[in-house]
């Protein structure tokens, strides 16, 4: 198909190219940011101060559903981008809205999970483990929430302006961001939850 052999629309101007590169570098900074949070968590995960450990409070089933929701949302985000490349605004919007709903579902589940932890007696104030856990998960959650807000702004702009070099660049960048959060979640799932369940 023609749309796949030529330069994608989002790369069509020099400014767009620079903005996308800038965002990749920003994601590099985000990797350092989350790496620091992970390092902090690994240092402190056993600092439970006589309080519950992760294994005591973990709800593996809920975490699995969260993982499923977020990973699927990453997939639908990819489909939305594919529709954008096909220049199909309607399909793009449909998949974007599905992505948003999945993201919102993830946030709903995660907030529930937090409430559960608090009921089980683990808060940010209970122990160093609690502080590190809530900060790592919370930072990811805040990122997802900001991402949802960001996507909503882009939907408005897409409806108003259609697929243009500028809107396509913005959408491409938000999709990078969304996939990045997915990658972070895979690390959280592996090194926080799975490790916590096994230890």
């Amino acid at each position: 198909m023609a749309s796949q052999t030529s330069t994608p629309l989002e790369y069509s101007t020099h400014q767009n190219e620079m903005t996308i590169l800038g965002f990749w570098i920003f994601l590099g900074a985000e990797i350092v940011l989350f790496a620091t949070l992970f390092a902090g968590y690994f240092v402190l995960e056993n600092g439970v101060a006589d309080g519950p450990t992760l294994k005591d409070i973990l709800m593996m089933k809920d975490v699995l559903i969260e993982t499923f929701l977020l990973l699927t949302s990453s997939f639908t985000m990819g489909l939305a981008l594919h529709q954008m490349r096909q220049n199909n605004l309607k399909g793009m919007l449909i998949f974007t809205v599905i992505t948003l709903l999945l993201g919102a579902g993830f946030m709903y589940m995660e907030i529930n999970e937090f409430i559960h932890y608090v009921h089980e007696g683990v808060t940010m104030q209970t122990s160093a483990f609690g502080s590190a856990l809530f900060t790592l998960l919370g930072t990811h959650g805040v990122h997802v929430t900001l991402g949802i807000g960001w996507v909503i702004l882009l939907i408005i702009q897409l409806v108003r302006r259609g697929i243009t070099p500028v809107t396509s660049r913005k959408f491409f960048i938000v999709s990078l961001y969304w996939h990045f959060l997915d990658v972070i979640w895979i690390f959280i799932f592996t090194f926080v939850y799975l490790k916590g369940a096994l230890m």
């Binding site: 902090g40 402190l44 600092g47 439970v48 101060a49 209970t126 122990s127 160093a128 609690g130 502080s131």
Partner: peptide, 20 residues
């Protein structure tokens, strides 16, 4: 982490609560 410790009672750096 400093902000959370100082303003929200977190324990990243308090030894008594498992921090470091």
């Amino acid at each position: 982490m400093m902000t959370l410790d100082r303003m929200f009672g977190a324990h990243f750096f308090t030894v008594a609560a498992g921090g470091d």
